[in-house]
Design a binder for these strands. Structure first.
Lengths: 199, 199
DNA sequence: CACGTAACTGAAACACGTTCTATTATCGGC
DNA sequence: GCCGATAATAGAACGTGTTTCAGTTACGTG
């Protein structure tokens, strides 16, 4: 009788060897993406670099998109941790938001290929990766909600954070395809913040 | 001596036979996308349906992404034409914007597969399709600038239009991956308009 | 009308994401 | 320590986007 062994469960990886494999896979993905962007993240190359068989790679991540979006999730989680730890400088909501925006934007400019790979994966994802994508979307929301620097964000605060997240994503896509320069992105984000927060 | 015959020039298609081929290709693309979304737009299928050889298809559109984004551009151009013709109802900027938003949103809901195919192609495009993508981006900007219903949009008007376009795109992506329902999208867009236009 | 060039065709070939198969290693429970 | 089940491995195989190429056709020009 063929059971249904498909799909590895959540983050519930039993043995430490499995946790380690997973980490190696994500590391390999990020290294390859960082060097050559989306197209350089080839499943055979990831498997080889992570020292797992191709089939194993697919058991951990059912597609290239899952893989890259999961990597993005991992990176964002780290960014969020840093963000949660240190208080955000700035006197007004707007100042704090601009601070966070410029920090993140600089971060992504530091590794254009990685940014390109992850952004495109995130945007291209289909419904099969909706869970992973949704996680990232919530992380982005939290990031910009934190940026407001309030203990208890109001509904309006959350809405503002979401709009800024949306604008940020659009600009990220434009930057990644070189339709917008870093300066363009910065200007548009500042303008957006000004429009949304008149305090 | 091998010349460099690569790449078909802009819209400068000489003969009417060529214009016709191009139209057949776009039509085939839209028909296939409409029926089965991004994955159903297979280059061999498009070629067959448009009654051209695969090589010819690639001569007109250098990739599947170019093809779909060009199709999106064509559709948007039609939408813009309609929009330019009839005046937009509504007393305030916000009302007119909401009118346009709901019209477009309904339009996309009417053909989910087509929307999915085009949205994902637009978002996934790399630098090689930057020209086509940029055209679409400008069309979207114009659409929402028109929606403000002013003869001479101010700089702020344009900025607002761009922000709304960005939010709309993000929500489109979320809807396409079924992370957001149509109602979610509508609500978020209304909220955004409210935040941006307090008149 | 004949010619030369560029466009089109049909088919094969290639690349990379994904799936499948046969085999071997590992792990949890006895 | 042994057994059955689950996971991992190596490698082949498949599908679809993309490229290439040899032969054919259509078109503008002398």
């Amino acid at each position: 009788m063929a059971a249904t062994p498909r799909q590895i469960a959540e983050e519930e990886l039993g043995s430490s060897a499995q946790r380690d494999r997973r980490r190696r896979i994500i590391d390999a993905t990020i290294a390859l993406a960082s060097k050559g962007g989306f197209e350089a993240v080839q499943m055979r190359a990831v498997a080889e670099r992570a020292d797992v068989a191709l089939g194993t790679l697919y058991r951990y991540f059912p597609s290239k998109i899952h893989l890259l979006v999961s990597g993005l999730g991992a990176q964002l989680e780290r960014a969020l941790d840093r963000m949660r730890r240190a208080p955000i400088p700035g006197d007004t909501r707007g100042d704090r938001m601009l601070y966070v925006l410029s920090r993140i934007t600089r971060g992504m400019q530091r590794d254009p290929h990685l940014t390109e790979a992850m952004t495109r994966a995130f945007m291209f994802a289909d419904t099969s990766a909706a869970a992973e994508v949704d996680l990232v979307a919530r992380q982005i929301e939290e990031l910009f909600t934190l940026a407001l620097g309030k203990e208890e964000p109001s509904e309006e605060d959350k809405a503002v954070a979401r709009v800024i997240g949306d604008v940020w994503l659009s600009n990220l896509v434009a930057w990644v395809t070189r339709r917008a320069s870093a300066t363009d992105v910065t200007n548009r984000l500042e303008l957006t913040v000004r429009l949304l927060m008149r305090d």
